[in-house]
Design a protein around this nucleic acid. Structure first.
Lengths: 255, 255
DNA sequence: CAGTGGTCTAGACCACCCT
DNA sequence: GGGTGGTCTAGACCACTGT
């Protein structure tokens, strides 16, 4: 019959929804504005809530929305550019409005994967420094810095054996070593419970895991595993001075 | 009554499931092995399929599983380290077993965000080169390389106006410019339909979006937007020679 | 064709935040 | 307490892959 097959394509509903919402966000909403709640949105678009949520999840993954339990869904600001640069390094603390905040230090065996990158046995205890990275007052990353005892020989063992003060001591001693180079890798992960708490996210939230091996005196002086909030961060690797991308670069869009 | 509250903690089922599955993968399964299907797994753990799927999704996000419609769920190999280095660059093609494969070239206006990074007007047409990055025969990244006409003045306009041959010409001309530096950023995104197809993933699959601005002769010579499969890739930024991390570093785990 | 993962529904209850 | 997002269920059907 004359049933014109409009929408002949078999595009998933949630994908189409995401596109529609994405365009609505561009035109009808300001940053920080709160959206109608999920039940109402679902009703408005004539889909089940689960389907709507699938679309919202994608938009959150792309950094366009921010959802908080008990509060609501808001339009997210553009992602923050976070420098993970080579030069102005930074176990010192970093520049401008940014900072690593040493939160704690304990001594324990490193996970096998980390022990393998350090030059230590799997069960040898190392200093484990916990740091939080703040940008504009917001926590954007949580880091575990693994430092073999051999890297900080002058560390006075008598001082406070743990806590923030100890953490700062370790970082200070480490800094005196100088730095020959570093190897770094970035991959996608999901937040462990403790990291999630520091980052004000739910466990399992997507994070960018930056693993750095610091080289000094011909060996591996330390290994850092930093988890950055993937929803709000854009990692920048400056190679020639800073740059400010006027970033309305909406990560990806439907074709 | 005497209902002992075992499992008093309020840990989501899918989270607990993920942990259990993760340990099972470590001990009972080999890379490439196929898991029981979702309906059976769900039954075996006494949960709804949707709940099981939530756990599988997380494990896939962390690169531990690979799911293919019509086939099944298999245990994924460790992530591939993909060099996104500073030195041996690489609009030339790259080293060893790796390569960018120029697939196509067309001329059109760049998206607003890209035009802003280039020094061109939003509606000025630029060369858009499509390239695919192969590693061990597998496509790991799809790239769009935006090249203003001004960057490749010697490009003979008469030659094939589009297609792979044209793409290679543009890259060759670009390479003759030399390189003063580059700014790079990495963020999480979701695959557009066309990228997803190249990467053998479904639309919306998580990808690492690497945006690079190539600097030459005091200006921006080109901008590259490359989307890497987040499930299989670990981006490496070597700063001092190569390294081979014996990487059984399982991105993240429950505490 | 049978079997797989992918999408979708219409409910329910829970954990959290605010007032 | 009322409203929000987060979890979970038990189904159904679809799209794709292999044989």
């Amino acid at each position: 019959m004359g049933t014109t097959q409009l929408e002949s394509v078999q595009e998933p509903k949630y994908w189409h929804l995401k596109t529609v919402l994405s365009e609505a966000l561009d035109s009808d909403f300001a940053v920080g504005e709160i959206l109608p709640n999920e039940r109402e949105l679902a009703a408005r678009f004539g889909v089940a809530r689960a389907t709507l949520r699938q679309a919202l999840e994608q938009l959150e993954l792309e950094g366009r929305l921010q959802r908080r339990r008990g509060v609501g869904t808001t339009v997210a600001p553009p992602r923050v550019g976070v420098a993970v640069s080579t030069a102005q390094h930074d176990w010192t603390g970093g520049g401008a409005g940014e900072a690593w905040q040493s939160a704690d230090c304990r001594t324990a065996a490193a996970p096998a994967a980390v022990a393998g990158m350090l030059d230590v046995a799997g069960d040898e205890p190392v200093h484990i420094v916990r740091r939080i990275r703040l940008t504009h007052g917001q926590a954007v990353a949580a880091e575990l810095l693994y430092v073999p005892a051999a890297s900080v020989p002058d560390l006075s063992a008598i001082e406070t054996p743990s806590g923030p003060a100890r953490a700062r001591s370790v970082v200070r001693e480490l800094h005196r070593l100088g730095l020959d180079g570093q190897d770094r890798s970035v991959e996608l992960g999901s937040a462990r419970a403790d990291d999630a708490k520091e980052l004000d996210r739910l466990p399992g939230a997507p994070v960018l895991v930056v693993t750095t091996r610091y080289l000094a005196a011909g060996g591996t002086a330390a290994v850092s595993v930093a988890t950055y909030r993937a929803d709000t961060c854009r990692l920048t690797f400056g190679d020639s001075g800073d740059l400010e991308i006027s970033h309305d670069d909406r990560t990806q869009q439907a074709s």
